[in-house]
């Protein structure tokens, strides 16, 4: 097979001879033959690629990649979005507290100033200046939220684009994305997973069966006599 797909010297030689002899018909026929060899080689390569791709897509079957695309990738995105919201809330709380403390400090300074003995005035203003600058430092440190937020936004974008490519691949392979089932997991497996610890329950799905308040926890344990 390999020999027939490669251009051999003899063919080229014959083509040259035909051209030298001015035998156009023969030259054309030989040229066609040579081109066909090249085309058939290309055709074989494309066909082998198609075959490989087809096999890969066929192989998707009930593969983990379907479940990962349907369940794990959206879960990862949801968790990253939680980190965005949580850090933003924490930053805002810290900023609010710093703002209130700064306002109280300047009031305190005004109130204290007339009451402090002359020799202590310098100390008072030194103390308030230090507090002022430390509170400003606390405030400025919250700028991390902007930086980490930009990084998270970018990662979320990459994950979403990966998700879209995988969904397209799933459709291409003749699978119905919407019909991908939940992960088959027995109650025992689920419990075993949970007993390893799953971290904060931040996604909608992880909020199922959740004790939301300390009271819920107390009630649950009280039911067991604790």
């Amino acid at each position: 097979m390999a020999s027939s797909t490669h251009i051999n010297k003899q063919n080229v030689k014959s083509l040259l001879e035909a051209l030298e002899q001015g035998d156009e018909t023969r030259a054309e026929a030989l040229l066609d033959e040579l081109t066909q060899v090249r085309e058939s080689e290309l055709f074989q390569q494309v066909s082998s690629l198609t075959h490989n791709l087809h096999q890969t897509l066929e192989g998707l079957g009930d593969a983990e990649i379907l479940l990962q695309t349907k369940h794990d990738i959206p879960d990862a995105t949801e968790r990253l979005e939680y980190v965005m919201t949580a850090t933003e809330e924490a930053s805002n709380k810290t900023l609010e507290s710093s703002e209130r403390a700064l306002a109280a400090l300047s009031q305190l300074e005004m109130l204290m100033s007339p009451l402090v003995a002359e020799e202590d005035k310098a100390l008072l203003s030194e103390c308030t200046a230090t507090l002022n600058s430390e509170l400003t430092n606390i405030m400025l440190a919250q700028s991390f939220q902007d930086l980490t937020g930009q990084v998270l936004n970018r990662v979320i974008l990459v994950i979403s684009s990966l998700e879209q490519s995988l969904i397209a691949l799933i459709h291409e392979s003749g699978h119905d994305y919407d019909a991908i089932p939940e992960r088959a997991q027995t109650d025992e497996q689920k419990k075993a997973d949970q007993m390893k610890g799953v971290g904060p329950n931040v996604t909608d799905k992880s909020k199922e069966d959740l004790a939301e308040t300390q009271e819920d926890v107390d009630d649950l344990l009280a039911g067991l006599g604790l």
Partner: peptide
């Protein structure tokens, strides 16, 4: 001008300072 409200708040507070 900033799309992150935290950063706007920080800059405005610093300017106030």
């Amino acid at each position: 001008v900033d799309d992150f409200s935290t950063m706007r708040r920080i800059v405005i507070n610093l300017l106030k300072e």
